[in-house]
Design a protein around this nucleic acid. Structure first.
Lengths: 127, 127
DNA sequence: TTCGTTGCAAAGCCTTTGCACCTCT
DNA sequence: AGAGGTGCAAAGGCTTTGCAACGAA
């Protein structure tokens, strides 16, 4: 694997993602980081995002047409609101035995999992 | 909502999907249904797939760039093999209390969830 | 100097859509 | 006849990639 060099762009992208609690799409992140680095190009953003995903610094959630990104790599669950389309972190602690339980009847190997709930977020629900 | 009419194409698409245990992408399904209906067009396939998803006859799993489809709408879990990229059904029975447990600390409403495991399928694992 | 990184623009891939024709009901 | 469905081809949206210039080590 290539050796990583420091880059202003990558740092800015990662920092931006770490400082927000929504789970932005590439375009949302792009527009935001662009305030800091106006010359940033979309290609660079995508290159860095896939790099960060590959080395496990961030994770991506796929949803219909586009990916959403999250700098919190600790196991946690998400809610996707059917009404406004946003992703939220759920406060529930992850279930310890989940992966183990599902490994029991399966002859392959389970290394991780993604759990996404669907429903209505608090904001949409109260309207 | 529009009233559905019977169509040879839609029947063929749904039957094809019901008779397979992989979780094909639109293109895989297209190539397969085309053996039966050579004139089938991609646009028709997509129109029918999104219709079937909307009325809950099938479900879709998004994965990176493309959607995978599944005619089994009963709650069940999936394994995506990191090695060959295929989706499999896991034999484990779904965990009853999962959605309920995660609803507890959350003020919105949870209506369903998708649980995808990542790892290595039996075939890739034994090589 | 070396080789990863960037901007830009073009290309790619998957999916959606407009339109005229077809076909259930 | 009326309204939904189909094929075809063009258009869209998101992401990737080629290339020359740039910059960290």
């Amino acid at each position: 694997m290539e050796q990583l060099r420091k880059s202003k762009q990558r740092d800015a992208i990662l920092n931006n993602l770490k400082n927000r609690y929504d789970h932005p799409t590439a375009m949302e992140l792009f527009l935001s980081v662009r305030n800091e680095i106006p010359s940033l190009s979309l290609g660079t953003l995508y290159r860095n995002l896939s790099q960060l995903c590959e080395n496990g610094t961030i994770i991506s959630l796929s949803s219909g047409g586009e990916e959403h990104f999250d700098a919190n790599v600790n196991q946690h669950y998400h809610l996707k609101c059917n009404s406004c389309g946003r992703y939220y972190d759920l406060p529930s602690p992850p279930i310890e035995a989940l992966a183990k339980a599902c490994s029991a009847d399966f002859m392959g190997k389970i290394t991780g999992y993604t759990l996404i709930f669907y429903g209505t977020c608090e904001e949409c629900f109260s309207q």
